[in-house]
Design a binder for these strands. Sequence first.
DNA 1: CTTGTGAGCAAGCGATCGCTAACATATCAT
DNA 2: ATGATATGTTAGCGATCGCTTGCTCACAAG
Lengths: 201, 201
Amino acid sequence: MPLRKRASDRKAEIVAAALRLADAAGPDRPSTAEIARAVGLTQAGLFRHFPTRAALWQAAAAAIAADLEAGWAAALSDAGVGPRERLAALVAAQLAAIERCPALPAILFSPELNADDPAIRARFAELLGRFQGYVAAALGELAAEGALRATLAPADAAVFVTTLIQGLAVRWRLGGRRMALAEEGMRLFRVQAGLFAPEPG
Amino acid sequence: MPLRKRASDRKAEIVAAALRLADAAGPDRPSTAEIARAVGLTQAGLFRHFPTRAALWQAAAAAIAADLEAGWAAALSDAGVGPRERLAALVAAQLAAIERCPALPAILFSPELNADDPAIRARFAELLGRFQGYVAAALGELAAEGALRATLAPADAAVFVTTLIQGLAVRWRLGGRRMALAEEGMRLFRVQAGLFAPEPG
DNA sequence: CTTGTGAGCAAGCGATCGCTAACATATCAT
DNA sequence: ATGATATGTTAGCGATCGCTTGCTCACAAG
């Protein structure tokens, strides 16, 4: 094993450590010294790879965006059968992404990262909007099929779905992650989807 | 007007300023200097009223708890007619509390304040559990009346209700508070409650 | 009018923050 | 083998952090 790692590997390592630490301390919270220690570097060594602390978090934001988008793409492609399966795949992908990076909700929704950096803020807003759009689109197709209650607007249903995911993630985090997020999340999602179905009468 | 204020007034003023600033910067974020400037004191003057910075946030947590509990008590008492009205009153009270203190969700759910201070963490966990309990109890009564779908467990329904509130609060905050939280929240709650009702057949 | 106390300020402490400069060495290309 | 480059280190900068010290003075009680 080489004593020194390639810059690309180090960058990924640093970003991963930052996200891991952010989960415990809060978004934007871990200091450069903490992050450096986590990857076995001196604090100054960090600045070989990122010109500034803000750049580090921009890279972290980009990594998050890439991970989310990959998950959505997979959900939208291999579940091509119908809107019902596509919706479930989207929810599953989102829950899986949160399990992979528990700091994700805190990072996406917290003001710390957003406040300072308008670029990150805009990027995250666009990300959240995209997911909301995918969910709403699937629900719209369900409505067109008559698979949604007449009294339930697809946009409202999308709010129910996305707030359920986000709320469960927060609950999972606060509860010390004792429950299995994906399993419990999909169970509740199926219950919710059952409520969306039109009355048989 | 006296040049100097009574300590009790100052304390309340300081706590209010801290909560107001926390909304913009994130929980636990505003420095003692910022808070002091907001109330027209020097940074050192702050420590006449709170022995430590942590004590300030403990007082803020207590203020939040008192506000929430007062809202719940009102909702539980004056809506004594039935579980349906009680549930709506609880949701309305929670939305109103969030409108009064927009930093509330961030403070309740963020790790910054909780991580350092186990006392605050426990207090907030108890608060959230209480609200969840009130909601679940009302939904349980509805179920006993046969006013809930047979396939819908009251505990699951309570998750849907609380995650809706919390999710809307985050959305409200991120969207720059352009929507009217209470109005939109109650509208969506009513839609959701409609989904909970048993099928007429 | 005096006096004790409570509410405030100016100044500065040690620690930590993000970041830079100067220097060192592992690794790669030739 | 050797020079160039990339990946590190040590040391330290200025700013800011929470907090303490020593002092001032407004205000209420006697």
